[in-house]
Nucleic acid binder design. Sequence first.
DNA 1: GATGAATGAGGCTTCATTCAT
DNA 2: CATGAATGAAGCCTCATTCAT
Lengths: 217, 217, 217, 217
Amino acid sequence: MVYRETPRVLERKQARRRKLLDVAIRLFARKGYHAATVPMIVRASGISTGTFYLYFSDKEHIFAAALEELGERISAAINQAMAAAGPDVLLHMQAAVRALVGFLADHPREARILIVESSGLGKRLDGVRRRIIGSHTRGVEQALAAMADRLPPMETAVVARCWVGAVYEAVFCWLEQPVMERIPTDQLAAAIAHFNLRGIGAPARTLEEDKDHGSRD
Amino acid sequence: MVYRETPRVLERKQARRRKLLDVAIRLFARKGYHAATVPMIVRASGISTGTFYLYFSDKEHIFAAALEELGERISAAINQAMAAAGPDVLLHMQAAVRALVGFLADHPREARILIVESSGLGKRLDGVRRRIIGSHTRGVEQALAAMADRLPPMETAVVARCWVGAVYEAVFCWLEQPVMERIPTDQLAAAIAHFNLRGIGAPARTLEEDKDHGSRD
Amino acid sequence: MVYRETPRVLERKQARRRKLLDVAIRLFARKGYHAATVPMIVRASGISTGTFYLYFSDKEHIFAAALEELGERISAAINQAMAAAGPDVLLHMQAAVRALVGFLADHPREARILIVESSGLGKRLDGVRRRIIGSHTRGVEQALAAMADRLPPMETAVVARCWVGAVYEAVFCWLEQPVMERIPTDQLAAAIAHFNLRGIGAPARTLEEDKDHGSRD
Amino acid sequence: MVYRETPRVLERKQARRRKLLDVAIRLFARKGYHAATVPMIVRASGISTGTFYLYFSDKEHIFAAALEELGERISAAINQAMAAAGPDVLLHMQAAVRALVGFLADHPREARILIVESSGLGKRLDGVRRRIIGSHTRGVEQALAAMADRLPPMETAVVARCWVGAVYEAVFCWLEQPVMERIPTDQLAAAIAHFNLRGIGAPARTLEEDKDHGSRD
DNA sequence: GATGAATGAGGCTTCATTCAT
DNA sequence: CATGAATGAAGCCTCATTCAT
């Protein structure tokens, strides 16, 4: 509050945090949580070890931050897609699946962090992961509630998790395949969306429009 | 030439391997792959370090063995349930879901190993995991193929993964809830099976029978 | 002394000892003292660990035995060559060098054991090594004494060691070269013998006969 | 940005590396490569394990560093002696032998590392050793080439190795003797130099000057 | 005599984190 | 604020040797 240059300093601080986080995301994605070491992150960032601990109190914290950022990016992508999808909730959901699949397909390494690397890392990090995936689940749950009248009765909480689990697992397996053998992203997204929409008992009409994408020939 | 009584020795060898594996499964389940250390396993087994490496060449190998055993137990449970489910493939699939959910619910710690702890552990272990979950996926795929004529056309490979992903994710979230807040296992299994069967476009008839289980009130 | 079959038993014992020793020599030669482990020797011999310790009280002992056998083989080769070399002591010495070089060149792996692997292995084994190489040195010393009148006065003990050191080092370096780049064994032996004979001040006459071997063109 | 006084820190770093290296040289010399353990070196240095690996990436590396340092010290000693030896190449060579013998005699433990302990330690370390001893050999070879016209024709590469082998073996044996029984260093050096000079066919004149040193009485 | 399962001390190395500068 | 040298607990694993069978 005394010096005018505070803003510039703040800026630099932000920049350093960013740098660290970017490098960390890349390394976590590439090598996994345990194999990506603090010394590595620090070296690749050109920032000193001490400074690292100035911005992140912990290795866990930087991983959590990475996870969180990922979650936000995904949410943004989904929200944007839903906003563009027109008024109908079912279309929203379909768009959401497509957006999620698209994002994961476009950022496979980052997807790996969320789907694979963030598992089994202890209470704290498991919690963060839950929160992020949970937010998707909740989104689905709310959508289900919003059109409860047009759907058969169901265990919405469970179904929402099925929905999300189906997306992640299908995309993950797809990512594990050699690029050459993968079906096109669109087709993948369509197939998943189709499965999920049918799974929640969406009225046949909606599905019809989608038919040509979801079937092979 | 004077080394008799091999049977007794063999027996003890088996017993030791078992002991080690049991303890390892417990520890891996409780603390995760990294936090469960070889010294811990050894201490808890009352067996020497050297002996450990006599039975498992590696920490990775004992984990793989644990995973594999789990896979077999699950497969056994599923196969048994399917055999008892009558002639129809759809009923088979329903039974399989119930069996899988039931198994995971009954062995939450072991489930944790497979679903959570076995992720992001490097090529070798990821491979083992894939194989196990993959075998479920293939089972689903075959079932889908077997009744292709009664189902709408679909991307079977993708759909099979959705199916499996839905089960695992739903069960896993359910396991994370405090016991008090969980819905009954049956109800969970029914909801998941319902979602999945609808997802593959199973004829309405089949689903009807199941209606009262899958809805809340 | 009670059973007639003692001889047959003894025979088998000998055979086992031999087997172990042969395998050990091969492994020590190939991998060095530390890298060649008892389990390896045992496995490669098809003989049990326990039995190993029946024949050799120690890993050190089997290595010592290997060394000793090598020493004997070399001595035998040298003695034989010397016996065939005619009456003159100088010719003896020349023949000895040729025989030693020849042996080491023909058994490079075994040579390695003696020259390289047997160094720095602790008091006991260093002693064995000394004894073996020392016996060569003493041979040289005696020869020097036997023709003291025909040679300039010298520090025979030191000179004998120089003689032996020259042979081993020259051969060893030669062995380290790619086979393609090596000069022929004969030429090597001649060059070394020439150096050594001159080194002890052998009368020019003797050397003359050898001229065509030791010089390049 | 507030990290001043680098010089003081650098100084301490140097000191630590030195300390570690000194202790390591002592221990390697006393107990050999395998028996001298990292924990030992660390304990004797009063430096932590982690710090050890900060300065030397490996146990092999610190041994290599020890070897290298030794090589440099020896080279320095030899070069200095040669520079002081006057213009003639033969005198140079004589001086070099004396310097080498003198050095090894004055630093018996270190000599042990180079001559004895550095053998049979695997590719990497064998390479380092070769390089060091090889540099002596090459020195001899160059000298031989420089006076080729004054010497009889010979296989210079082989002869150079004979020269070096003679020195090392003679000194090494001498070091193994109880101090009481050793002949004086000068006499040893003279005897070796004499042998070697004669071995390369050095003109009699040169040797004459040296006569009184090389003979016993 | 023969076997091979069992032992356990101890080796090498890593890495998250601190703290003097 | 920033630095990076220093820490040390703890991990994984090997292997010479013993001893019950």
